[in-house]
Design a protein around this nucleic acid. Structure first.
Lengths: 337, 337
DNA sequence: CTGAAAGCGCTAACAG
DNA sequence: CTGTTAGCGCTTTCAG
């Protein structure tokens, strides 16, 4: 294992100079830098992060806390974060909180995060006041991606605006009988903007004078499997909405399956619209209000590193892009055909 | 920030004793241990992993390399690994290789992994001989989960056996006209046992004298969206198989959607069977040959830590459980009703 | 522009 | 059972 001192010895230089040359610290002769780097290369030098970390107090790693890895939004954000972090020379230390609802030990923060990471990115997480206090005591930059997270600067879409856009799309198509597929993901620690979305839907629907039968307010809990189950009985009954607004594309896909299995057609009998821009939306010809989780993750990575490396902390909320993508799952209601 | 020396000073002990007491090293008076731990607790001591790492050469972290995070199998394995690792006091350092097909810099191994992790777990990865050599030169325990990975001890199902089981299920139901939905995921670095599965299918089908029209061999590339697209034309043509054997549940779900959209019924018109035991399989009433990726991940975590902590390296292949789960998507073919 | 020296916080012989 | 003494490999004043 080759160290900095060996390079120094080899070249008749001091450890300090070699260290500076390797890191590109200004104030070293260009020739020296070149020589040192060449030697490091040929000798097969690999920096020891632990040693550097001890000396600097930095680990070149950031913690990423996710509520679960199985949902598309979360793992997409994580993909973006990992890519962003790695391109900046940082590692991703994963903290998957799946199935740890309400049981996250405070210990987590103190003993695990401390000194192990330079920053923390929380994806769609809800934290208790106690946990938040522990985080703050870590005194490292923190940032959230997803719905606005109390105590965190956050990057994310405007959930209300997105849902309003989606709802207005079907309203504009002439639908007056609307269903909503949303609910809460009780299994995870994420809130996912569920409240904002549902509220925006109701507001837009009622403002337009649409009919929203209470039995059409479905709790798909943000999972495709549950969506499939709760949607099924509605479209096998004799009263169903002409348009179903879904709070996520995963739920929308489950709903479309249930609707077809019930013998109805999308969009002829019922229009379906989702939110997210899921990678499968195109194949399912699903109209959706798309957001770009990987981009959000990459942005989070860049911003946290900027802060870690001394930059100032930015705005408290960074609005992310979204866009209505109209496909074949939405159309005018039967009556107005 | 409180250190070990502060505790030592406070208690009038030496750093060494405090260190030993804290780590539970045998050979310290019980009273001393108790006193030290109590003091550490009240003083709010938190160990510095970097310092410990420098001294021991261990980081208490393991690298997990995945081909992508968006596919259920991969993220499920990762969930299991993270849970296992964390329960043993180790951190998960993520290396998501999504979209880095063929472009993985050798640099990766040398500069990133070295000294940063104590072990490496590769999930469904294919490595070049060159990469493999670099891994080996790291001289840390390595283990793979998924299909047998050259150069790695691996934990995984017997892909051929699983596919044989699935195929024989529809054969036993009386199907004689079989389709296969498989292919390769060219986007990722994973092979995923695709070859073994396809071969096992063909063997079982031909052995039973079944008809497998070449146009029924579909390349869904292990993605639901692509499966949906390639399956659609087949069931809109005038010649289709009575049973479709899918190499993954994700593809099977896409296929079922396509079949229904084409106006056919599952299982009345066509039976569909998958492989994986996807979390959505139950909701879709999909018959599948299930495997348990989270359990595989947890096992991998336990085994790698056992090795890291001095245990011997075990068998070269650890067969994982699988089980045929019969649901409503498979039934006898039309003719024999 | 380069070198010497001190030290980051902890562990690991080696003594006692 | 406990203390002393060296480092682990790198960064960082402070001199020159």
């Amino acid at each position: 294992m080759v160290t900095i001192s060996q390079i120094a010895a080899e070249l008749g230089l001091s450890k300090a100079t070699v260290s500076r040359a390797l890191r590109g610290v200004p104030g070293v002769a260009d020739v020296t830098v070149a020589t040192v780097r060449a030697a490091a290369e040929t000798m097969g030098y690999i920096p020891d992060v632990a040693a550097a970390g001890l000396a600097t107090g930095r680990s070149r790693a950031v913690a990423v806390v996710v509520p679960s890895l199985s949902r598309w939004f979360y793992n997409s954000v994580l993909t973006g974060i990992d890519r962003g972090l790695r391109s900046l020379g940082y590692d991703t230390v994963l903290y998957d909180l799946d199935r740890s609802v309400g049981s996250w030990p405070h210990v987590f923060v103190r003993s695990d995060l401390r000194r192990r990471v330079d920053g923390l990115i929380a994806v769609s997480m809800m934290f208790s006041a106690e946990e938040l206090a522990e985080f703050s005591s870590l005194d490292i930059p923190m940032i959230a991606v997803g719905p606005t997270t109390h105590g965190f600067r956050t990057i994310g879409i405007d959930d209300a605006a997105v849902m309003t856009t989606a709802t207005e799309h079907v309203l504009a198509l002439g639908h007056q009988e609307l269903g909503y597929l949303g609910g809460f993901d009780s299994q995870s620690r994420s809130l996912g903007g569920a409240v904002e979305r549902e509220h925006a839907f109701m507001t837009a629907a009622l403002d337009a004078g649409a009919v929203v039968d209470p039995t059409w307010m479905l709790a798909g809990r943000y999972r495709q499997s549950i969506a499939l189950e709760v949607v099924t009985p509605v479209f096998r009954s004799d009263s169903w909405p002409t348009a179903l607004v879904c709070a996520s594309d995963e739920m929308a896909i489950g709903a479309m399956y249930a609707i077809q299995a019930a013998g109805l057609r999308v969009p002829q009998d019922v229009s379906v619209i989702g939110v997210d821009g899921h990678e499968y939306a195109q194949a399912y010809d699903l109209t959706t209000c798309a957001q770009y989780p990987e981009a959000q993750g990459e942005l989070a990575a860049r911003q946290i590193i900027a802060e870690v490396e001394g930059g100032p902390s930015r705005l408290s909320f960074e609005p992310a892009d979204y866009q209505l993508v109209v496909r074949g799952s939405t159309g005018p209601p039967r009556a107005s055909r």
